[in-house]
Structure formats: C-alpha cells, structure tokens
Design a binder for these strands. Structure first.
Lengths: 271, 271
DNA sequence: TGCCGGCATTGTGTCGACACTCTGCCCGAT
DNA sequence: ATCGGGCAGAGTGTCGACACAATGCCGGCA
C-alpha cells in the first residue's frame, strides 16, 4: 500500500490582484484584508488557468460585497464581463459552490449564499471546534520563532487597539487566527479552515456591523491563547481558543439582533 | 438585512443506483454500505443532470475501489466509458476535487487522492473535533424518538457483534455515527461531515484492513456516547465521542503499521 | 553507451453552438 | 376581475472542436 504524495497543491484560492485575460489591466479590485492572507493561501494566479483566475475574481467579488448576498449570478453576464466563455466561469462557480459561497440549483442558476442567523450560529459552532483543535496542535507543533513573531504581532495590535479601539475590519484578527491555524501543521485542518471556513466567516462579516469597542477584550483573549501555546499546554490552548471563539460569537450575536428587528422579505432578485 | 433561505439543497451526493444516460441499464455498480447511507444523503438522481449522475457514479467508482488510489483519471476515457461528453465529467471531477477525493493538477490531469498516514491522522484529528461537537449538540437537540431508535439499533448491532464480532464493513458503524451527526441539527456540520469527511473516511477505510475483533469495544463506546446523549449531558457526550474516535484511530493505526512495512513506489499510472 | 534536444502524441483548457428547461408575460375563459 | 394555459424569452446543461501544454519516444551527439 503505497502512501506518499497527498494533497500536493497547497491551496488554490482567493488572491489579491487577479487579472482575467492574460493581457488586460486589472479590472477587478481584488483587495485582500491588507497584509493578512496575501501570503497565506495565495498562489501566483498569473500563469494559472482562466478558471483559476475567475474563481479568485468572482470569489473576491462576492466577499467584497460587489455582488450582494442572495443576488443571482448570470453565467452569460459574468462571462461577458470577464471576457471569457462560460466554461471556465462555470468551473469557478462550481468550486465556489463547494465552498458554499454560492448556491446553485439545477436549471435555475447560481446565487450568492445568503447566511441566516441559524447558519451563522452553526458556522461558529463548527469554527469553535476546529480552531480549538488548531490551537491545541499549535501548542504542540508551532515553532518557537513563530510564537515569538506572533507575540510581536499582538504587541503591534495592542498599540493600534489602544489608539483606535478596533480591530481593523477584522483583518488583523484574521491574521492572528491564520497564524495559529497554520501553526497547527495539520494540512487537512489548514485547508478546511483557510480555504473554506474563513471564506464564510469573511462573508458573514460583510453583513454584520463589527461590534466596535470590544477589541480590547478580543486582544486579551488572544493573549491568553498565545500564552497557552507558548507554555506548550495543548489542553489550555484549546480551551482558551474555544472560549475566545464562543465569546466572539456572543459579541457578534448581540450585534446581530440590534440593527435588524425582524424584516423578512420573501423574494427579490437582480444583481 | 434579510436572512432566510440558506443552503436549501440538503445534499447532492453519492447515491446508490446511478444511471448515466437517461435510458440505459445500470452499468456501474453504485452499491452503498447497505441500509446505511442510502437514506442519508441521497437525492433521487434520476432527473438530475448528467453532471450530478457522473459525480455520484465516479465518486462511487472511487470509493468502491474500482479506481485505485493514485490512479490517473483520463477525461476522454471516462467520458467515453459513460457515454457523455467531457463537460459534465469535468464538473463532476471538480466537485470531487473540492471534496478531496481526487487531486487535480493543471494541464496534467486528475488522479484519485492518495491518503498517506499523516493525512489519515489529520483526518481523524479533525473528525474527532467535529463529531465531538455533533455529539454535544445531539445531546441538546436529538428527539427522544431518535434516541430510542438509536438504542434499538445498538441492540441490533450487539446481537450481530456477539455473533460475528465484527462491524460489517463499517457500514453499521457509520450508521450509528450518521444518526448522531444528523441528530445534532447543525446543517453546516451535517454537510461537512456527511458530504465531505465521511467520503474521505470511506476512502481510507478501503485501503486499511478493518481491525476485526474489536467490534465489541467499539460497541461499548457507542453505548457510552448514546447514554450521555440520552441523559442530555452535552459535555459528557462530547467527551465520550471524542474518546471513541480517538480510540478508533488508535485501533486503526495499529492496523496500519502491520500489513505494510514500507514499500514506497514512486510512480505508476493507468486506471 | 549514455545524455540531450526535437518531435509526435496525448490530453487538458477553452470556445462557440445547440437543446432543453424554467420564468415571466399575454391572452382567453370563467 | 381573476385564474389558467400558451408563448416567447432568457438561461442552463451539454456537445463537439480547437489551441496550447505536457509527456514520452526517437535520433543525434559526446
């Protein structure tokens, strides 16, 4: 039973600058939460296939909010807008579907996934478990150097937070989490969280006003997680991370109820 | 902020009998571990698109071992074998890729994912966390009726196990887990585990001889999980489930080392 | 005899076109 | 006036074909 090369392509994913046709100025603003994920998941999307580029571009379009949640996605439209045929676009949509960013119904088309509160709660439940594992494994495998670097990062965050009391658009928050996830060394987990779950988290962040004023709190929790990892205490790290995620969700939920009492429209279209 | 319909299509997936062309006898044996998942994930794949049918068929081909792990998948070949064009096959492959059953490299083709021991360990780590959550939530949300039914199922298993001392091909084992996962009521979790992770688990089960003689042990663990759920004790349920998965992995790992010292061929082709 | 470069072949990525399905609109009937 | 059926339009699913990339083979050269 041979068992060697597994999952070689580390991650095809949403990248920063993504052009579409080989020689064309960037018409899509594929901005990433600066300095965050650009180095994480990206692969040079330059010599990649059109489908890859479209996957990245459309993904970014969705995550950036350029295409609203629930909006229908017309294949001919989008393909034309990108100057490609439908084939690569369909591939991109299919991959986005698997990552749950779009929902497709046969003979009816694709639309951007709409996240309801129940689904958001579920996402956070799963995220809690997964990042708990990540923290646990990071406590086991994360190199000392990475830990030190992460500590410096948190110091930097603290400086910013005391100045503005806000984790800028969640990108710094993500940065912290990404590093721990990568620190786990668990390839399956890394792929699952970075390639799939964080897309959903970024998506739901779009529709939720970030609860400001609590960055200080999050920072404290981050420090606790990091301390546990630095002490090489897997159980504690897991517990702290889980508690942090749970707390973050609590904060999120409170922000969720306020702005929107209960408007429940049934149908609407047009992208 | 409207937020209503999310993730409507419960699950397109590997089904039992899957025909390809509308009117053609089933040339692909799409057998499921009988009586297990047939009711879980399936959707009548009859009026579905060719891509859906191919997705199910090729998936089953892989899971059944008809296409070996690491084997190359030639698009023209497979398409011809199924009497379709490459377009729907490519869609199927792409979806299988997202589910990590096949690995594709641009301009080079797709091959069945090969699971190395490290990856298997990672899968079990993640599975432990996810099914832990599932058990926890099942303790909260699973209907009494379902619990009672599950108890009867375990009684049935016990009868079989005392007779043969083996969980038949893992299908009964899966049945137990599936019910708990579904009992969690967490749609995201259900999709993640059933649509994605259990495919991998079935795949790795193919390459690992099932450690017989330990069914009794697994059954005891199953009962503990169920008891905790019946007592509506989420924490205990989670702990028991995690322990069960961890123990199952231990058993698996022992089975992993024995039959295969270290043959490591580098390359081979042909499906 | 072994290594390197060119060539043919295979196969993937992409394209344009067609068929069938679904949606929305218009019209006639009740 | 409202409801049901038919029709047109749009859109998705599928197909066959082509271009470029990658692989493997063959011959030339050291």
């Amino acid at each position: 039973m041979p068992a060697i090369g597994c999952i070689p392509p580390p991650s095809p994913l949403i990248c920063r600058q993504t052009r579409l046709t080989r020689a064309r100025p960037p018409d899509i603003r594929g901005r990433m939460p600066d300095g965050v994920a650009s180095d994480t998941i990206c692969r040079a999307a330059d010599d990649a296939t059109a489908a890859d580029r479209l996957f990245a571009a459309v993904g970014e379009l969705i995550l950036s909010g350029a295409i609203e949640q629930g909006a229908k996605i017309s294949e001919p439209d989008l393909a034309a807008r990108f100057g490609t045929s439908r084939a690569p676009l369909r591939e991109a949509l299919r991959r986005l579907e698997e990552r749950k960013l779009v929902t497709r119904i046969a003979h009816q088309g694709a639309r951007v996934t709409r996240l309801c509160p129940e689904r958001i709660a579920e996402i956070y439940q799963v995220r809690e478990a997964l990042e708990g594992i990540a923290a646990r494994e990071a406590a086991r495998h994360m190199p000392e150097a990475a830990i030190a670097e992460l500590r410096r990062l948190l110091d930097l965050h603290e400086a910013r937070v005391t100045a503005h009391d806000v984790y800028r658009q969640g990108s710094e928050d993500d940065d912290f989490h990404f590093r721990i996830i990568r620190g786990s060394g668990n390839q399956m987990l890394i792929r699952l969280l970075l390639d799939e779950y964080y897309l959903l988290i970024r998506l739901l962040r779009r529709k939720l006003s970030r609860p400001g004023g609590l960055a200080q709190r999050a920072l404290v929790e981050h420090r606790r997680v990091l301390d546990a990892i630095a002490e090489r205490d897997p159980e504690l790290a897991e517990a702290m991370m889980r508690r942090h995620i749970a707390a973050a969700f609590d904060r999120l939920r409170q922000a969720m109820v306020v702005p929107n009492p209960a408007p429940r429209p049934r149908k609407e279209d047009k992208a």
